[in-house]
Design a protein around this nucleic acid. Structure first.
Length: 633
DNA sequence: CTAGGGTTAG
């Protein structure tokens, strides 16, 4: 009897009274529905009236709203915290989570952790993910290691969340070996552990190691997140074919697409110029009800722009509600018009953006100026370059100078281009000088080209393109001994020219051609078709550009005759496979060479085909014997 | 009815 009495007494002393319980419950219900700071402040005063201003339960909920919810105010959370006489671990954890997520100084979170320890509040398993996350954000691997020691010391070394956070932190700090050690020490890593490490290997460029890990995941363990981590890894390293293969496998395993996977695959389509595959993903998004947020819409717009379908890009852009037209979707559309040589339209869109009071950023101007450069709009380019600083307060960066030098140089205005370079507050980089060198090549300005050629090469000694332009400049001037010198320098340094290739998509299959390559199953027919094409366009005045053959270091492997440049193989393939009147779309990794450009124009006339070629710089729309670039590229 | 709260991919 006395025993049961004692128990009753104890409950009364340390348990909450019914009144207190009721009040706490009331606060809990109210806080759940809280949606704004104004509302929260009412709840705060209510808590004070109810005598709960020092109550960890009630105040903890209020602090949680301020610290971590979307509409919360972190500084208010800190004020509330300071008024708490004995904040418990929950409140410390909540504040630390807020500091980690919202503060610009993630190390504040670590300082808070130390404060917690000094006040003898024991950390629990919820404490460490935030603290470790803060170390990750601050790139503080040494502090991270110390926190790791605390995790073990306080006995949470077996907690999955803590371990995953540690893996994430080591990955984020680039300490892959340490991440791997934590992972290897887990008896049963979960899907997050696997995915985090896969993404980690991918981020530091070890795509193949990421794939090995992906393959060794236990059956049924892969989530759509894991698939996406691996697919995105291929996409980011430009290994688009492998991305497609993995995507196919994923579809075979009946994994549904989500918006992340859709975005990754759209980028893969963009990389290859695979318009039809891209259209398929776009349709899938529409039909499956995947939420079309601003980012995903921009990814779709980018895909259409870079797959040569400006109309569809503009359609998606136009249909995007005004509130979802973020700066990047405007930039993307302006950049798309620029690539396609629609300088005037790019300017109009920029003015429309201005009219809608969307503030341009530096990328907007890179795209706008490059639109002017690709269309030869010198006057407009000068105008917007000035307005960028004067009206929009944006200081020109290297890229902007590069666009201006490109614009003026192409137009042959070397004095003004040199003046731009001279006025740069920073020393010109390879991009800016490279633009000038390119202009020298077009206008056969050997003197200036010679003057800057060497510095362009030395700024980027591993970029084969720089050697090639200079060699071509000399070749055009007939200075063969200088050509040989540049080639020798390139050889001595072991710099390899990127082999040129052209890609064409047909019937859901992406085919890749390299100059003179014979690996394609139908290469016999293909080469016969090329010969037929050349024969027919000769009748319309085609003369091979011998100027380019003799010293053709320019676009494709020099040992291959220009008749079989990859672009011509791709055109032949397109003519063989597609129906009369259908547009042929080709993507290539290098610039279009002069001879292929001529040939493509004639093919478009003789075979009555529109040919759209994406090169590494821009688009060429060949139609009725003309090119959209007006031979200005 | 002393709970409430943590990690990953574009």
């Amino acid at each position: 009897m006395s025993l049961s009495l004692q128990v009753q007494v104890q409950v009364q002393v340390i348990g909450a009274s019914p009144v207190l319980r009721r009040r706490r419950h009331e606060m809990e219900m109210e806080t759940q529905r809280c949606s704004s700071m104004a509302h929260l402040k009412q709840l705060h005063s209510r808590a004070i009236r109810l005598g709960l201003s020092s109550d960890n339960d009630a105040m903890g909920r209020l602090i949680k709203f301020c610290a971590v919810s979307e509409h919360g105010d972190l500084s208010y959370a800190l004020q509330l915290f300071d008024q708490m006489p004995q904040p418990d671990a929950f409140i410390y954890n909540t504040i630390m989570r807020g500091l980690c997520r919202k503060s610009h100084f993630p190390m504040d979170c670590l300082l808070f952790y130390l404060r917690m320890l000094r006040r003898s509040v024991s950390p629990n398993r919820f404490t460490f993910p935030s603290v470790i996350g803060a170390c990750c954000l601050a790139n503080a691997v040494e502090e991270g290691r110390q926190v790791h020691a605390h995790v073990l010391k306080f006995g949470f070394g077996e907690d999955g969340f803590c371990q995953n956070s540690l893996i994430h932190m080591y990955v984020g700090c680039g300490a892959l070996d340490d991440a791997r050690k934590v992972f290897d020490g887990m008896p049963a890593p979960d899907v997050v552990s696997w995915t985090t490490l896969i993404a980690g290997y991918s981020r530091c460029g070890s795509v193949d190691e990421a794939f090995r890990l992906f393959e060794s995941m236990p059956e049924g363990e892969r989530s759509s997140v894991s698939w996406n981590a691996m697919i995105a890894s291929y996409v980011q390293s430009n290994r688009f074919h492998e991305a497609f293969a993995l995507f196919q496998r994923m579809r075979d395993e009946k994994v549904e697409l989500d918006k992340y996977l859709a975005a990754s695959m759209l980028s893969a389509c963009t990389g290859l110029g695979a318009l039809n595959q891209g259209k398929w993903i776009h349709r899938y998004i529409d039909e499956s009800g995947i939420e079309l947020d601003s980012k995903l819409a921009t990814t779709i717009i980018d895909m259409y722009c870079k797959c040569g379908c400006l109309e569809k890009a503009y359609q998606v852009f136009k249909e995007l509600p005004r509130k979802d037209k973020g700066i990047s979707s405007w930039n993307c559309m302006i950049g798309g018009l620029a690539m396609h040589g629609k300088g005037k339209a790019a300017i109009e869109l920029f003015e429309e953006m201005h009219g809608q009071r969307v503030a341009p950023d530096n990328i907007t101007f890179v795209n706008l100026l490059s639109a002017c450069a690709h269309s030869g709009l010198v006057e407009e380019g000068r105008h917007y370059f000035r307005r960028m600083t004067e009206a929009h307060g944006i200081e020109p960066r290297k890229e902007h100078y590069g666009c201006m030098v490109d614009l003026l140089g192409r137009a042959g205005m070397f004095e003004e281009a040199k003046e731009i370079v001279g006025n740069m507050p920073i020393s010109p980089d390879a991009g800016v000088l490279g633009a000038l060198l390119g202009a020298c090549k077009i206008h056969r300005n050997v003197d200036l080209g010679e003057e800057i050629g060497e510095s362009v090469i030395e700024l980027e000694p591993n970029n084969s393109g720089r050697y090639v332009v200079l060699a071509n400049l000399y070749a055009n001037a007939g200075r063969w001994e200088d050509v040989a010198k540049v080639r020798k320098l390139m050889n001595d340094r072991g710099v390899k020219k990127a082999p040129g290739f052209s890609i064409i998509e047909f019937d859901g299959v992406v085919s890749e051609f390299i100059a003179g390559g014979r690996t394609h199953p139908e290469s016999k027919e293909l080469y016969a078709k090329v010969d037929e094409i050349l024969e027919r366009i000769r009748g319309f005045g085609y003369v091979p550009d011998v100027d380019g053959v003799l010293h053709d270091l320019e676009e494709e492997e020099k040992e291959n005759p220009l008749y079989y440049h990859s672009e011509k193989l791709a055109i032949a393939f397109g003519l063989l496979k597609t129906k009369p009147g259908e547009t042929i779309r080709i993507s290539k990794n290098l610039r279009v060479c002069k001879d292929c450009h001529n040939a493509s124009k004639l093919v478009s006339k003789v075979f009555e085909r529109e040919i759209i070629v994406r090169d590494r710089n821009r688009f060429h729309h060949f139609r009725m014997g003309e090119c959209s670039c007006q031979d200005y590229w």
